[in-house]
């Protein structure tokens, strides 16, 4: 219950900054509508089915940044020291900071998917399976935000955001990795982004089932679990100044 108290406070912080919230929700949406409008026979990569998962992933990176920023900012204040003197455990702390941003990520993914469907996104496969893939990605990114927020200053967090955004290139959100080949495919296979995008596109466009995308789910799920455990461990160390 202590994590709920902390989550309530952090959710209030999110909702009381409507400009930041609006940007987090609107920017990916504008990007989706703009890019899909440019799509066509000459640009097959800009169809809603190819674009939407990548833009959801882009939105999650923004959520990661916001979650890292609130924690990083709090750490620089006496309020954080006060919170650390209350009987709250490290895992409750991480959950209390993560929950509001998981909610924002969820709303963001739903809005993008619904708008995507309205402009032509295929919805052949199981919505639950797509939701599972997106949920694992959201958990991974928010946990990553917790790690950055626990260890970095506000300025450093901005740098980490740029780095992660750059790494998502290896997911194949904006172009076909197979066409480029080489190191892009090798690195892409090791990181979770390509698995998340390939898996969700296969479910949406081809109606792939669990067995078809199990490997992708395990990759993304594995990264999510490792990130959450790492976030709790890192935070536990941060509970002492």
């Amino acid at each position: 219950m202590r994590s709920t108290e902390l989550a309530t406070r952090n959710l209030r912080e999110v909702l009381r900054d409507p400009v930041a919230l609006g940007i987090a929700l609107a920017l990916p949406l504008v990007l989706l509508l703009t890019l899909q409008a440019l799509g066509g026979d000459d640009a097959p990569f800009l169809t809603p089915t190819r674009l939407t998962p990548g833009i959801v992933l882009f939105g999650f990176v923004m959520v990661m940044f916001s979650s890292a920023m609130i924690l990083s900012r709090d750490r620089e204040t006496s309020l954080f020291a006060r919170l650390l003197t209350t009987p709250i455990r490290s895992e409750e702390f991480v959950w209390g900071y993560s929950l509001p941003y998981l909610l924002v990520a969820g709303v963001q993914a739903i809005v993008l998917t619904v708008v995507g469907i309205a402009v032509g996104l295929s919805s052949e496969g199981s919505p639950l399976l797509v939701a599972l893939m997106f949920a694992l990605m959201a958990v991974f990114f928010v946990a990553l935000g917790m790690i950055f927020g626990s260890t970095m200053t506000v300025a450093q967090t901005s740098g980490a955001y740029a780095l992660v955004l750059m790494l998502t290139i290896f997911g194949g959100a904006w172009f076909d990795l197979e066409e480029i080949g080489g190191v892009f495919v090798t690195v892409g296979d090791v990181l979770p982004f390509k698995h998340a995008l390939d898996g969700s596109r296969a479910i949406m466009a081809d109606g792939a089932g669990f067995a078809d995308v199990a490997t992708d789910l395990y990759w993304v799920g594995g990264y999510a679990v490792v990130a959450v455990v790492a976030a709790v461990i890192v935070f536990r160390r941060r509970m002492y100044e």
Binding site: R9, R16, L79, R82, T85
Partner: peptide, 17 residues
């Protein structure tokens, strides 16, 4: 931590609450 209350040297409040 269950039995203590702390008022740090610097004002420690959540400004948006």
């Amino acid at each position: 931590k269950r039995v203590i209350g702390v008022s740090p040297q610097e004002t420690a409040v959540a400004p948006n609450l």
